[in-house]
């Protein structure tokens, strides 16, 4: 069995966000593998290590620096990596276009049986692209998964719903997206980092995968940081008195009670 994991390079979650010239500034910001994608990569490697798969391949859409994220996945234990890029893909709001590109690349990478990804990217917060590609490819999906078994031509997964969980089965090939409790991603050891250097990383243009990008459904017209808070109004006094005063403020001033 071959597993494909789609990943995205994102800012570290601690990054301070600044806007520069109408775009999010990446100046001095460390970029990492999207944390939810890392769970997906770890899961794929685990499946391979337990004999459930022969090959783990990672795929990303991203500019040259995204190659570093792929290298990290290779150092974790993936066997090969693919990166698709075209400068026209740099604009935000192009989830529809990304899904077309992703589906094209996944089509070219066939045959594979399992598609894994993080359930959301921590930067754009969209959770659209890979599901949309799955529809185009005609495969079922189980999203936001915290437990996964693969075997007998199907996946059995526990997925997070609003306020409850479900055990779900789907036939292979299928898409599964990972949530944080799925596993604890390993950090690559130095010998594996060095081995990763020799693993294949293929770069594809849109032409290589036979896709025409088309125009994006959305264009970004504005970008802003949230308004700065001025700090809390501190309710003074003995704890018990302050508690009563606070309740009163919430009732009469903030009107939330």
């Amino acid at each position: 069995m071959k597993i494909v994991v789609t990943i995205k390079q994102t800012f570290t979650t601690e990054a301070k966000i600044a806007v520069d010239g109408g775009a999010i500034s990446d100046k001095g910001i460390k970029q990492i593998v999207n944390p939810y994608d890392e769970f997906a990569v770890e899961q794929a490697i685990k499946i391979k290590e337990s004999g459930g798969a022969e090959e783990v391949v990672v795929l990303t859409i991203g500019p040259e620096r995204a190659g570093e994220a792929l290298r990290q996945c290779l150092a974790m234990g993936a066997d090969a990596a693919f990166r698709v890029w075209d400068d026209s893909l740099a604009a935000p709001g192009a989830w529809d276009v990304y899904a077309t590109v992703l589906a094209g690349a996944l089509e070219k990478m066939k045959p594979w049986e399992l598609l894994l990804a993080g359930w959301v990217a921590v930067d754009d917060n969209a959770a659209i692209v890979v599901q949309r590609a799955a529809e185009t490819l005609g495969i079922p999906q189980v999203l936001v998964v915290n437990k996964l078994d693969v075997g007998d031509g199907k996946v059995t997964a526990v997925r997070e719903m609003d306020g409850y969980r479900e055990v779900v089965e789907a036939p292979l090939p299928a898409l599964v997206t990972a949530d944080k409790a799925l596993n604890t991603p390993r950090y690559p050891t130095l010998p594996n980092i060095m081995k990763a250097k020799r693993k294949p990383l293929t770069v594809w243009t849109l032409e290589d995968i036979g896709v025409t990008a088309g125009s994006a459904g959305f264009t970004r017209t504005g970008l802003a940081l949230p308004p700065a808070k001025t700090g809390a109004k501190i309710v003074e006094g003995e704890p018990e008195e302050a508690a009563v005063a606070l309740a009163d403020l919430l009732h009469t001033e903030a009107k939330v009670i």
């Binding site: 800012f11 979650t13 990054a15 301070k16 966000i17 806007v19 999010i24 935000p92 709001g93 921590v122 930067d123 754009d124 917060n125 459904g217 959305f218 264009t219 970004r220 017209t221 504005g222 970008l223 802003a224 940081l225 949230p226």
Partner: peptide
């Protein structure tokens, strides 16, 4: 308008 980067910024998109 939607939050990005875990609410550390908001983008406005037009379609």
């Amino acid at each position: 308008k939607r939050p990005i980067f875990a609410g550390k910024a908001f983008e406005t998109l037009k379609s």
